[in-house]
Design a protein around this nucleic acid. Structure first.
Lengths: 209, 209
DNA sequence: CATGTCATCCCTCTTTAGAGGGGTATGGAA
DNA sequence: TTCCATACCCCTCTAAAGAGGGATGACATG
């Protein structure tokens, strides 16, 4: 290996402290370096295009453009890009969507340096990296049925506290149809009523406040 | 000032990366040092008792014992302790409770080093530190009426998706009383129904999932 | 072409939610 | 003590919510 063939990393996180921490952690490793720091998704995209890093370490919850959106964009524009998601547990749905979006790995912010560094190296080398516990939750996730886009849309209005009739108006459908969607939401999420549906969806990351 | 009279800081955060970041940040300042690192509230208490730091920098969302609980405990056992809350925006109610719990300051994880370092120095020197935007949100908070402990309790059951009758059973009251509490919750939070009450309470940090 | 999924619409029926009144007992503040 | 907030109880009534059926057109996939 050439001495200057370091793994060039882009980090994207809206928390300044986290960015410092990542830079500090990476700088302890001689074979990697942080070449760009972004505080939001849009900035991450810009910097990726400019720096063309070997690895993008991206937080899920960021302003302007979410980690998921950013990952999708990066992978679309740079199909060879290696993306590792770093987050403070945002629910199974987010993990699933991150991997669907093309991320090769997923690490939690609580994981120690001994776990993080190998993840960085692994994903930069083109391999996948998904912690066992995350993988198992991902498996159990599949036991729940997938919500359709329309159902998610209804769920979002539901979270605002709208009544069926109001949801019907905003979505330009009838109250009957709203009730139908609600019925399938309740059965798919295996909950008893709309309020539990909202909290369950929030916990699983299907919707956000 | 004596050369070795550094500000001795205890940091408590469940995210390893954040702890690294804080250590890295603090180490850039010659007059302060991190003397203890805790990954949860209980550990923070232990280490505080052992190290007796000049300042405790505490995250709000931690396992085992929350930042609020930890702050209350620390302030009870060490009335002279200086506590600075560090968090990723957890809703107005949390900020309010943190300050009620005896914390002298409040900083957001997104704030830059130029803002964080003065906050550390200020609180360690016995002064208060509350960002302007946080202070203004705190003021607007007071326009909402305070929920009683019982109402918060009902709200928590509400978030589980329980029906009025079920809530009544778990709290050993009648359904009528549950409805009464619900009525005052709806009016105090200025929302139309139970579902909106739950999301509003989550946003304001009155309850958590 | 058949099958399946999605989104839409419709009806009935029972239970629940929420608005509107009423009241009592307690314990702290004025 | 008088006042006020809290917590508890009760009743009625209307409008929702949610469970149960059945049905259609669009569109993709086998």
């Amino acid at each position: 290996m050439k001495k200057d063939a370091k793994i060039r990393i882009l980090i994207a996180d809206d928390h300044y402290i986290v960015r410092i921490g990542l830079v500090a952690l990476v700088s302890t490793e001689p074979d990697m370096e942080v070449v760009a720091e972004a505080a939001d998704g849009a900035q991450a995209l810009e910097l990726f295009a400019k720096c063309n890093p070997d690895l993008a370490l991206i937080d899920l919850s960021m302003p302007v453009k979410s980690g998921i959106e950013t990952t999708i964009e990066i992978r679309k524009r740079f199909p060879a890009a290696a993306v590792l998601i770093l987050t403070a547990y945002d629910g199974d749905e987010d993990i699933y969507r991150a991997l669907q979006a093309g991320a090769q790995g997923y690490v939690l912010k609580s994981s120690s340096g001994e776990k993080l560094i190998p993840a960085l190296r692994s994903v930069a080398a083109g391999q996948r990296w998904i912690p066992k516990d995350v993988a198992s939750r991902l498996a159990s996730r599949s036991s729940f049925e997938q919500l359709t886009p329309r159902e998610v849309q209804v769920l979002q209005e539901l979270a605002k506290g709208l009544a069926n009739k109001e949801i019907a108006d905003t979505l330009n459908i009838t109250e009957h149809t709203t009730k139908d969607h609600l019925k399938s939401i309740l059965s798919k999420l295996r909950v008893a009523d709309r309020t539990e549906a909202v909290t369950a969806a929030l916990q699983r990351g299907i919707i956000h406040l």
